[in-house]
Amino acid sequence: MTLSDYCRLCKINMRVEVIYGHSTDMFSSKKPPSLSERLTILGVTVAPESGESRRSCQRCSNRISRLERDLPTFRQWEEEFRNTDSNIAKRQREPTPSKTPRALKKTCPNPPSPRDISTRKTTTQVTITYPSQTLSRVCNPEEDPIIKFIILKRWKEAASHALKHKHLQEELKSGIIQLIFEECEKLCSQRNDFILWRSKPADLKSFSFHSLRDDLHRLAPFMLSIFNCITNNNNLSTCTAAAIAIRGRQPRLAALSYYINTILQYGGAKKSVFKRLSQLSITTSHGRAIKKQRELALGCGADFQKLKLSFKDTDNDEEFQEAFRSMEDLHLSDENSAPSTRQKDSRVTCPSSYSIIMDNLDLFVHRHNQSIDNSNKVYTGYTI
């Protein structure tokens, strides 16, 4: 979007209105005079400025043509009726009032003179100095308070009046949308290391809403302020709403979705629940949720898995001894705990560092998500 997309006179976006192809350059023309020169003849001075558009839409060009055609007739009417009004005013003068008696003059108060009533109105005039010329203009009533408060550095009042201005309101809206768009691009870029990009099992274990809020404040402070206003500064609602909204733009920002997946899976949610919520960008699909659940399960009980592997490899004495040293943390030695009456009477003696427990096993495993390879199972037997 460039400045030339807007009409200099009526401020409409010609690309949106699909009239850009019929626009005209105001300061250059194949057949002189140009539009700016024609406006000068009509009494309006338009000069090229760096922050303003150089083009005019077809509607405004047609209005200028109609004004040039009808202006001579209007001037003739104006001259005729000015003379007529002056003649009528001379003929229809009111008669001279009679003299007021002297007694009445003493009792009647003197009426205020019309000149005593203050008719002064504050106006704001702007002077623009170019290398080639100097322009001086009196501001319109709509722009007058905006420019006045900007000069006085009263930013709150200036912004309040700018939001009420019809044309400035649309431009401010476009600027705010552009600012939010740039912040969303930062969040969706992997180079900025946004927390929602990190969805590995180790990252999900350390996920927190406090870290999510810090990253939003670092990369998208303006968007975060909007969500704070909507949720009345509710941190959890703000972070959740922002994460779901940005995932609608980039589906791979799914750390919070995996976090919600684990809550639903723990509660036994069915596949249809994931299907509906994934369409709202709240969760992932059911297949991805199951895959991530298996990845998380591989890291559960890492210390126990290490101990189990050390028992299988009995040839390595160092690892075997290390495994039993770790078991000392789980069982109290006889030196630190007083023996019970049953232990005193028992003839079986156990080492102080570890113990072997044998028991029968009868375990029923109920699967939340059943499949051909993953169904309900019953384990029976003995374990050591």
Rank of each mutant, 00 (worst) to 15 (best):
S53C: 06
R59H: 04
K166Y: 07
L104W: 13
R66F: 15
A289G: 09
E49R: 08
L264T: 01
L71S: 11
T24W: 05
Q250R: 11
L104A: 11
S340N: 05
S337D: 12
F149M: 10
E68G: 05
F74M: 09
V44A: 12
L332G: 07
R15N: 09
T240F: 12
L309G: 15
Q178R: 02
G287I: 03
G43N: 12
H286A: 11
S23E: 00
S98M: 03
E78N: 14
T100W: 03
N234R: 03
I147E: 09
L296Y: 00
R325I: 06
A47C: 12
Y266R: 15
M14D: 01
N62A: 13
F222L: 15
I290H: 00
R54S: 02
H161A: 13
I147M: 14
A241L: 11
L330T: 04
T231L: 05
R191N: 13
P48V: 09
S346W: 03
L9N: 11
P95T: 03
V44F: 08
A323L: 08
R91P: 00
K11A: 00
N140H: 06
P101A: 06
L35E: 08
A243T: 05
G21A: 07
M223N: 00
C239S: 10
Q305W: 00
F27G: 10
H210T: 05
S189I: 05
E79M: 07
I260Q: 09
K90P: 00
N336Y: 01
T129L: 11
